[in-house]
Write a protein that binds this DNA or RNA. Structure first.
Lengths: 194, 194
DNA sequence: CGCGACGTTGATTTGCCTCAACGATTGTGG
DNA sequence: CCACAATCGTTGAGGCAAATCAACGTCGCG
């Protein structure tokens, strides 16, 4: 199934392509749709795909030795999601990826990505820049974990993801912030009475 | 000052270059040496350089609103160090970089890096792969902050940096782990009596 | 409607912080 | 090379933020 050109253009909205390049891009991106609750990646799977989120909401999370979930990333429209750590080395996932709100994704395989890099060099620059920004965001998150209280991190979260309403449960947010649902509940209560 | 060819080859040890490419590389890398205690980057500086650590030990750290230091990265031989978040956008640093043990560095400017990307495309792949690995390391660190106790994180640290002996003070390690020096001291005491 | 999933509240515990004091180690000048 | 100061590390007492455990509302969906 070929992916329609308009969606491809939306992914790379700052770049322009020749017809030939467009045809290459159409051949490697595959549109897939998932319902809420679907798990598109499980721990221990070999990670061969990354996903562009055309619409919907997802999260990636790790389950630790005690069985506790830790959300690493939420993904909304125009973001990319995968277990990048495993994707970069085509190795086994330590993450799970779950659909929180019905999603339309454009799938890209590791192999096709290398092929794209070779065929369309500006794609490599594009992804490098994406990665640079994601890296910076991770650094910010590490610093925030080191220097801020749970309340401050929650306020930051609300500001960073202002529109993640219905689809995200409180315990998803708690597992992203590194606290329990009970603590998050108390933080919300405290904040609500100014 | 031209940087000697052998050091260049050490940086890119998996790649081979033509004489022409070598001459380009020599023209953009600059060797610099610093003494222990030197601060090579201060918060609010515009970040235009990144550094390959040929020898020595450094750390990058952020000072938060309360004046507390948070170590983001230690750098030893064959690592790269900078405030990447700022370097990627040539903007103001939020980090400080300090020399912990006399260091020999190879400096590369943001501008020259773009020039390298254009002149020697495989350099872009090289740095992309470096970045992918650093990204994965950051993700691991976020997970470790979310799921592990200070004691577990300390044990991980010891395993990850087994040879950071003399140059790194306990309070550097504490600020990397996100705990106080007192807590680290107690953790060490606890671990020492098996 | 009723059940299961989700969120809240309370009581208690725990890990780490803060503040304070005191050893140990390092570096430096006489 | 020693003496002393400064820096660094350790220990103790007390406090606080968040975890744990447990119980109880509430909401949404089959």
């Amino acid at each position: 199934m070929k992916t329609d050109t308009s969606k491809i253009k939306e992914i790379f909205k700052d770049l322009t392509f020749s017809d030939f390049e467009i045809s290459i891009l159409e051949s490697v991106f595959h549109k897939v749709t998932y319902k809420k609750g679907a798990v598109i990646l499980k721990a221990n799977d070999i990670v061969t795909m990354q996903y562009y989120i055309y619409d919907g909401c997802l999260r990636s999370y790790h389950i630790d030795a005690q069985g506790k979930e830790h959300t690493v990333q939420f993904g909304i429209k125009d973001w990319w999601i995968s277990d990048y750590t495993a994707f970069f080395t085509t190795s086994k996932s330590i993450m799970n990826i779950e659909v929180l709100k019905d999603a339309t994704l454009l799938r890209l395989s590791h192999k096709d990505k290398d092929y794209l890099y070779a065929q369309i060099p500006k794609i490599e620059s594009f992804f490098r820049k994406k990665l640079e920004r994601a890296f910076a965001a991770f650094q910010k998150r590490i610093l925030s974990g080191l220097s801020q209280t749970a309340t401050q991190r929650y306020i930051n979260f609300i500001n960073k993801y202002p529109n993640i309403e219905r689809s995200v449960k409180n315990y998803h947010i708690a597992s992203y912030l590194g606290i329990t649902t009970e603590s998050l509940s108390r933080i919300r209560k405290e904040l609500s009475r100014h």
